[in-house]
């Protein structure tokens, strides 16, 4: 059950990581700057970096769950 939950969460983390990459990359695309402006670029960059960070933390937690290291914490 833990492995299944970890797998589902890992898929969610991976999808969010892809989204984070798209957001960060598109923060620097000329089209975004022309159409959306600097605030939207900053929001994409900040949002993308934060989502990427939390996706990485979740992926790490999935790994810990599967490798049983989290078991002692409940």
């Amino acid at each position: 059950m833990k492995a299944f939950a970890a797998l589902l969460a890992l898929v969610w983390a991976a999808l969010n990581a892809v989204l984070a990459i798209l957001m960060v990359v598109n923060a620097f695309v000329a089209k975004t700057a022309q159409h959306e402006g600097l605030p939207a670029q900053a929001a994409l960059l900040l949002g993308g970096l934060t989502i990427g960070l939390f996706a990485a933390l979740l992926a790490w937690e999935c790994y810990r769950l599967v490798t049983k290291r989290a078991a002692v914490r409940g």
Partner: peptide, 14 residues
């Protein structure tokens, strides 16, 4: 971000 954090927190506490 909240969903990612929520999953991280709860999976660490099975």
């Amino acid at each position: 971000i909240k969903v990612l954090d929520h999953l991280r927190y709860t999976l660490a506490r099975w």
